[in-house]
């Protein structure tokens, strides 16, 4: 047996058992790619091992791991998009953006179709069908848009942080978030969940 050290008291095996699937689902929701999500969970637990001495047990273990996971998802997405041609796909969606806008607004920039009243937000959030519709709409969002939207709205990352991590300009990020929100809103409106 090696001499006891602070490290030997750490139990990453237990982290994996208790939080592994939770972290994986969280990462998968953000990255929308199994490989990236697995990668992020691994890097998250490795980083947790390194910083465990500093973890004072203030927040719950799961909250602590989740906060590490967010940045690791960013890293994993970035690594992955260097290897694939995701960056090129952005331009293609850029063209779509113009078409989408043309259908939403008339030539003077006013709504072409009136917007529906979605009723009381508190009740929507309790409505199972709202969540089903939201999930279906998130599915349909192009992966790159979905990733950025999730980092911003689900993980609650600061925009400056996302721009740094994902190596994009803030104008680019704002545009992509706009397109995500417009797409989701329109999709939700078509789904009759209320």
């Amino acid at each position: 047996m090696p001499n006891p050290s602070p490290r030997s008291l750490l139990d990453p095996e237990r982290w994996l058992q208790e939080h592994g699937n939770y972290l994986y689902r969280y990462a998968l929701a953000m990255a929308r790619n199994e490989e990236i999500a697995e990668d992020a969970v691994q890097e998250c637990l490795l980083a947790a091992l390194e910083s465990a001495e500093r973890y004072q047990g203030g927040a719950s273990e799961r909250t602590w791991l989740t906060s590490i996971l967010r940045n690791k998802v960013c890293d994993a997405i970035r690594r992955h998009s260097r290897e694939t041609t995701m960056a090129q796909a952005e331009d293609v969606f850029g063209e779509h953006g113009e078409e989408e806008d043309a259908a939403r607004f008339n030539r003077r920039g006013h709504w072409a179709v009136p917007l529906a009243d979605w009723g009381d937000p508190a009740r929507s959030l309790e409505n199972k069908r709202f969540w089903q519709a939201l999930n279906a709409c998130l599915e349909r969002l192009p992966p790159r848009l979905a990733q950025l939207f999730m980092l911003r709205e689900l993980a609650g990352m600061e925009t400056e942080n996302i721009c740094q991590e994902m190596e994009i300009s803030s104008t680019n990020l704002w545009t992509m978030l706009y397109r995500s929100r417009m797409g989701l809103r329109q999709c939700l409106e078509k789904n009759d969940w209320s």
Binding site: W118, P121, S124, L125, F130, E153, L154, L184, R185, L188
Partner: peptide, 10 residues
């Protein structure tokens, strides 16, 4: 709608 979307994601 934007507010609801934001609340739901939070």
């Amino acid at each position: 709608h934007m507010e609801l979307l934001g609340q739901a994601m939070r």
